[in-house]
């Protein structure tokens, strides 16, 4: 789920038959493989995304196309409608969409030593006196995407544990649809706290320390399944295997290794669906509460 918010694969709808038919080199061979992500990180990450999408196409021997959308909702829609085959999506949209239209896990990046997991950080301005999440009551807060696990589900789960909802707890909360924007919004004090993907934050800390130094982490969630690369259920098994193989062998390929290094990803691994059970559990808890939810992205104002 972590990388999902960064690289944000959405689902990939693979029309298996179509793809299988296309593979032998028919007319359909010209049809590019479309891979969707949300634009969540800093500008130059666009280049990185283009690089690995191109790398995949290169390894598959067919053209690839990068499809970028602002929100997970949009990407879920693209997957469901079959307009993209592969997507980086957050663990939350994955569990929702899997239940909804049955997309499948392809691979997931391993960023931390512990495995294909990541965390949700609660950050505040570096000079803030807030030390615990609970102290953010009555303050301005930023979520990333209403369908983001680390940027929305984890904090709302925390609030649920306190018997609170965002609108009840915060004075004002906003959605920035970007983890990096959350870091920036805290840095410039547009908000007094924010939830961010640990992968994004750590990546920024490595590449733009001037920005992250104006913030501090006050809380770190338990590990959750990192943003996976999903593929449409309908995509042919052969293509699925081909694509999976490309990712799984990426760290063994010099060029692939170079790209991984830039992305600060150790390697891609196969992950079981059960990796996202913690998300399913949190969602279950939260959904008992009246949620403003993902489907109403225009956030309320207090």
């Amino acid at each position: 789920m972590g990388v999902s918010s960064v690289l944000c694969f959405t689902s990939l709808i693979s029309f298996c038959g179509f793809l299988l038919g296309a593979l032998p080199g028919s007319v359909a061979a010209a049809e590019p493989l479309r891979i969707a992500i949300t634009s969540v990180l800093v500008e130059h990450y666009l280049d990185v995304n283009r690089q690995w999408v191109a790398y995949v196409g290169e390894k598959l021997g067919r053209p690839t196309e990068l499809v970028q959308r602002r929100s997970y909702k949009e990407i879920s829609d693209l997957l469901q409608q079959g307009q993209v085959e592969v997507a980086f999506v957050c663990g939350l949209p994955y569990v929702i969409d899997r239940a909804k239209f049955g997309e499948e896990l392809l691979v997931a990046p391993q960023v931390y030593e512990e495995g294909p997991v990541y965390y949700s950080y609660v950050i505040v301005p570096s000079d803030s006196r807030v030390e615990r999440f609970e102290q953010l009551r009555g303050k301005r807060y930023a979520f990333s995407d209403p369908l983001s696990n680390s940027g929305y589900l984890v904090p709302t789960y925390l609030l649920a544990g306190m018997g609170e909802t965002p609108s009840g707890f915060f004075k004002r909360y906003i959605f920035t649809y970007s983890h990096s924007a959350n870091v920036e919004a805290v840095a410039v004090k547009l908000v007094e706290g924010a939830s961010v993907d640990s992968y994004v934050y750590d990546y920024l800390a490595a590449t733009n320390p001037a920005l992250t130094s104006r913030t501090k982490i006050i809380q770190r969630s338990p590990p959750h399944g990192i943003t996976p690369l999903v593929i449409r259920k309908e995509t042919s098994r052969r293509l699925k295997e081909q694509i999976r193989k490309v990712f799984l062998e990426m760290h063994e390929d010099p060029k692939g290794r170079e790209i991984l290094k830039t992305m600060m990803i150790r390697r891609f691994v196969v992950v079981p669906d059960s990796l996202f059970n913690s998300i399913r559990e949190m969602r279950r808890v939260v959904e008992r509460q009246p949620l403003p939810l993902a489907l109403q992205p225009a956030a309320t104002r207090k």
Binding site: T176, A185, A299
Partner: peptide
Amino acid sequence: VLQDDPWGLYKVAR
């Protein structure tokens, strides 16, 4: 304003 996106507007203003 319509999207209730103070962040987006902040970037414009900034």
